[in-house]
């Protein structure tokens, strides 16, 4: 049996969503301008968007960009962050760059990126990539740095994998790069496939070399 308390804590995220929608509803009613519809009106518009082939194509395009930006971001960031955490040299090289870029809102970089790369998929994917990679680099860096030295030593002694003192577990790192890369490509293919099934009439886009149907 679930106690009332458990039930409330399970339902908390749902309650938060409902609360937010409620506030939206009230705010829209109070303001009552054309450009700010009520939550209910907005929700009722969802089925028509999901039924519309144009919107579906656009949504899937966005999802694909997200998947690619995320996958590439993770592939680059996790190994880089881990290496920064384990090697002082790598850290002192990348850390200043990271610290300078980190606080800049990614949206503020949008105009510059648009100037460089135009408004195509590449620019959008790059923004997603930046948004993903900076926090991931930072947190893998901090995480790797915080690992207790004695624990690494304990691992190293019982292990044939680390043989040198720099603890470079490079074979695993590169294996992970390949695995995550494969996941990224696989996800992209899956999205493309799903898109092909849902919206058969649209042509697959080849703007980004990674995507294939």
């Amino acid at each position: 049996m679930m106690s009332g308390r458990d039930l409330v804590s399970r339902a908390a995220p749902l309650l938060a969503c409902l609360g937010l929608l409620g506030l939206w509803e009230i705010a829209a009613l109070v303001l009552s301008t054309d450009s700010f519809p009520t939550a209910w009106v907005a929700i009722r518009a969802i089925p028509s968007i999901l039924g519309d082939k144009e919107s579906l194509i656009n949504i899937l395009d966005s999802l694909r960009r997200m998947a690619i930006g995320f996958a590439v971001g993770v592939i680059v960031s996790i190994p880089l962050g881990l290496m920064m955490g384990r090697s002082r040299l790598v850290a002192s090289f990348f850390n200043p760059l990271l610290m300078v870029t980190y606080p800049v809102p990614k949206a503020a970089l949008m105009p510059i990126i648009m100037l460089w790369l135009g408004v195509g998929d590449l620019a959008k994917t790059l923004v997603i990539f930046l948004g993903v990679s900076l926090p991931v680099i930072y947190h893998s860096f901090q995480g790797a740095k915080a690992v207790e030295e004695k624990m690494l030593w304990s691992g190293a002694a019982g292990n044939i994998l680390f043989n040198s003192l720099d603890m470079g577990q490079y074979d695993t790192v590169y294996a992970m790069i390949i695995i995550i890369g494969a996941m990224g490509i696989g996800l992209d293919a899956a999205f493309e496939n799903l898109r092909g099934k849902l919206v058969k009439w649209s042509e697959p886009s080849f703007e980004i070399p990674l995507s294939f149907a």
Binding site: E148, K150, W153, A157, F162, L165
Partner: peptide, 14 residues
């Protein structure tokens, strides 16, 4: 370097 022929036990358990 470290190797499985020498097994450490630390005060910090690790």
């Amino acid at each position: 370097g470290p190797g499985p022929d020498r097994g450490p036990v630390f005060q910090e358990f690790a």
